[in-house]
Design a protein around this nucleic acid. Sequence first.
DNA 1: ATGAAAGCGCTAACAG
DNA 2: CTGTTAGCGCTTTCAT
Lengths: 337, 337
Amino acid sequence: MSLNRKPPTMADIARVAGVSSMTVSRAFKADSLISLETRTAILTAAEELGYVFDSTASNLRSQKTGFVAVTIPSINNANFADTIAGLSEALAARNMQTLLGYTNYDLDNEERLIEQLLRRKPEAMVVTGGQHTLRARKLLENARIPVIETWDVPANPIGYYVGFSNATAVRGMVDHFVAVGYQRIAFLGGDAGGDIRGSERRRGFIQAMTAHGLDSSRLIPAGPPPISMREGAVAMASLLEDHPDTDAVICVSDLSAFGALTECQRRNIAVPQEIAIGGFGNYEIGSIAVPALTTVDVRAREIGKTAAALILDLLDGAENVGQRAIEPTLLVRESSR
Amino acid sequence: MSLNRKPPTMADIARVAGVSSMTVSRAFKADSLISLETRTAILTAAEELGYVFDSTASNLRSQKTGFVAVTIPSINNANFADTIAGLSEALAARNMQTLLGYTNYDLDNEERLIEQLLRRKPEAMVVTGGQHTLRARKLLENARIPVIETWDVPANPIGYYVGFSNATAVRGMVDHFVAVGYQRIAFLGGDAGGDIRGSERRRGFIQAMTAHGLDSSRLIPAGPPPISMREGAVAMASLLEDHPDTDAVICVSDLSAFGALTECQRRNIAVPQEIAIGGFGNYEIGSIAVPALTTVDVRAREIGKTAAALILDLLDGAENVGQRAIEPTLLVRESSR
DNA sequence: ATGAAAGCGCTAACAG
DNA sequence: CTGTTAGCGCTTTCAT
């Protein structure tokens, strides 16, 4: 393994093992017709020479990379991280590699990212959300690979989608709050442009409140994404000052809901006796907090797993592949009863 | 953009633009000598044809991929996610792509992963921790690329490292607890084999307690990683039963520390009046919890940023590049005073 | 500033 | 089961 010699290639192994480089190539493929002894000799020679298979050459020649490209808003969010974990795990089982890109909640960033990722020749592309720049959409349409939009049910899907309606999910939560007896309900977050899923949730809140004949104007801004715990606490403080008669608050995510809860703790406001709290996303914090937070389980991990299964089916040449909807579940916990 | 024609190549653009394919190649490189009008004509033709640059060919011919491969135990951990965010962001600014692999806290998985990632011909490799299988180490040593171990200070580094001593960091926290007056201190977690950073923290606890002449036997197991909030709550329950006279507990991470805190809340045990709690890692939850948690800020994001800067320096041919230590900071908050 | 020729290291396609 | 030939789409190198 001298530092000044170039790394060995299949041709080098072929020479040592006394075979052609094509046979060496076959020895590295699991399901190829090759005699056991030839393969053993080749693998031994390869190990001795310190050979490392060169994917870049294989990728070019075979026109297959084993990449699946994915864009998510941010890695610093347990929901998206769960989706990636579910996706990566399922793909890794088939020796495919996830290529990740972060949009930072910005559609122009997403467009640039998609363009860059497509240059790597992924065999499928997964994007978060059903909203994209016109050019991003065109790039995806022309890419001749399966495209999967997630975390949403796009009005006009590019290809496939694996997701749910954020607005509908929140409507279900509002129905629960109203059924339990709350009326003066506020919504925290969903005000910022970049946070499409957040604004969809807020829209669902307004729709549901209107349907119940209730006042939907208690909308507390939480600022631009990422909206995390601290933003929830700050927004809760302003809610308590601006609308002191509020009896429940639905937050754009469990993180902001937990932040809101801590603000109540600091002010000795009993949850849910004086004010009920709902979150969104089923983050671990919601199940552990005291009181535990009512939330919507969006099955983040399952979104990833389902997207991966869909991709593998499509790459295997499956024909009758339908859209795959994810059904969120309302989890009623201590914070709203 | 008919579906049955193969995608255009540089040769196709060259034909349309009336130049050679070499000139087309130059038009796509930022710093190449080419007249403005030629470049404009080429880029226009490319856009019309719906051309997408093919990295796989470029990678093979130029023997550069723009990849940096990284292994982390899990993506579902805000600390590691922060490191990846810092790393990816800095690399993306130089058009490099992060290739992520998850070891799931297992050194054999890590070995397999490293082997697979090296086939992609990354230009540098970042691994979490300074402990690896013999074969993994050999693979990295032979890879002829910069290797950076993170989240640790390896006794015998493979190449470079960007990290800190987990044991030393915990010793600092024990010193603080003792200085404030706590004596019957327990350690929660760090018992599982796969969780090397956790067991290092536990080791630091035992060392420090011994140095202070205190009993270091209050070691509460939390099970195999990932150790999250729930495990902290469960372990806290068993601590309270087995060692009811404990006056402080240091947890392997802020997540388990928060879980421990919730167990105290459920039992109406005042923190820190009846029992103090320390965490590790400076997760957001620690700063938001009521009471806020004393913790160690390990600068997870900075680890990633520093590793990226180191890699870029090395790829730029920097010569006098030293190791880069990260200095963790003790953050004393309400849970221990 | 542009072009011609060659080849990166592997594998598809075909032959035997 | 194994070998030969050619070529994937770029970019290095050398010329002009």
